[in-house]
């Protein structure tokens, strides 16, 4: 086994998918000649040609809808909308078509589509390029939301998403693109959450770009860190198991606090683990402001290891 970056893992996954299945094609803005905004699809145009690594105009609604149509027509499209911020322009097709078609048609039409997008803040890109809306998408039945936080998942989740007969939104974290890790080459699932660090004193639940922050905080407070990995449908079994042991829980979510994914996790703990808990569940989310440009303000707006440690300490006060 050799260590590769998260970015390289994503690239290898795309390469493998295109190599394995003729029905797979990648389309999106600058995926081809430019090599991908984050260089994730670099070299793939040369290898697979413009039909299968298809540059699109800046038409998120149009080409996401075309991806849905192509999926209905027998292909296995991978649509890249560059970032979650621009996915808002494609929202109608994702929510009103991809997510609904199977149920609304009485089970006649599945949409085997993968939509990839980068998400998250932390690179001083200011308010319009720093959204974390994965949890928001997680509100919608009919789609699956996956959030690779490790190099292993960055390498393996695409194949699992393509094997899924329904629409999968795959969120990628530029904040993690340079992180390195080992890749086993084993298949990964897109159904379960996983313990990333064992600990005894508190359960820290997180996903995506916040995983390294949660792991750092856990070092200081003997935390057990659980990576949700899949934001819809949620798998809270390992969380419930962990809480039985630690009796305390903090949820870390880069999304905004109100009505967010953290709130959903907390509500489920309330429903399913109320009597296991020795303290109210706490959460560390983004402050409810547009993400600002200035570095110190951006840092203040986002979950940080210190905030997580403080929240844990609050549970023992």
């Amino acid at each position: 086994m050799s260590a590769i970056t998260y970015r390289e893992a994503l690239r290898q996954a795309l390469d493998e998918a295109l190599g394995k299945d003729e029905r797979v094609f990648l389309m999106g803005e600058d995926v081809g000649r430019y090599g991908g905004t984050y260089a994730v699809s670099k070299g793939l145009l040369e290898k697979y040609g413009p039909e299968r690594v298809r540059d699109t105009p800046l038409s998120e609604l149009g080409f996401t809808g075309a991806g849905i149509g192509a999926a209905l027509g027998g292909m296995r499209p991978i649509v890249e909308v560059m970032t979650v911020n621009f996915s808002l322009l494609a929202l109608d097709q994702i929510v009103n078509s991809a997510a609904l078609l199977r149920h609304m048609s009485g089970g006649q039409f599945s949409v085997p589509l993968v939509v990839r997008m980068a998400t998250g803040a932390g690179r001083q890109l200011a308010a319009q390029h720093s959204h974390s809306l994965e949890g928001w998408y997680g509100h919608i039945p009919g789609i699956r939301i996956v959030a690779p936080a490790t190099v292993e998942d960055a390498r393996g989740m695409l194949a699992a998403a393509l094997a899924d007969p329904d629409p999968v939104l795959l969120f990628e974290y530029p904040a993690l693109f340079e992180t390195k890790g080992e890749v086993s080459g084993e298949k990964v699932d897109i159904a379960s959450s996983k313990v990333r660090r064992e600990g005894g004193r508190v359960t820290i639940v997180t996903y995506g770009g916040c995983l390294p922050k949660a792991l750092k905080a856990a070092e200081e407070v003997d935390g057990e860190v659980i990576d949700l990995r899949v934001l819809r449908p949620l798998d809270l079994a390992p969380v419930l198991e962990s809480v039985k042991k630690t009796r305390r829980c903090v949820v870390v979510d880069e999304g905004w606090r109100s009505g967010g994914l953290a709130a959903e996790v907390m509500a489920r703990l309330m429903e399913q683990a109320f009597y296991e808990l020795d303290a109210p569940v706490a959460r560390v989310c983004s402050e409810e402001v547009p993400v600002p440009y200035a570095k110190h303000l951006e840092e203040a707006a986002l979950p940080q290891p210190e905030k997580i440690v403080a929240a844990v300490k609050g549970l023992f006060a």
Binding site: E51, F63, G65, G69, A70, A71, G73, G74, M75
Partner: peptide, 15 residues
Amino acid sequence: GGLPLAAGLALAAKL
């Protein structure tokens, strides 16, 4: 809403 879908169905047929 159906117009992009139709483009995609046509793209699938072409590919």
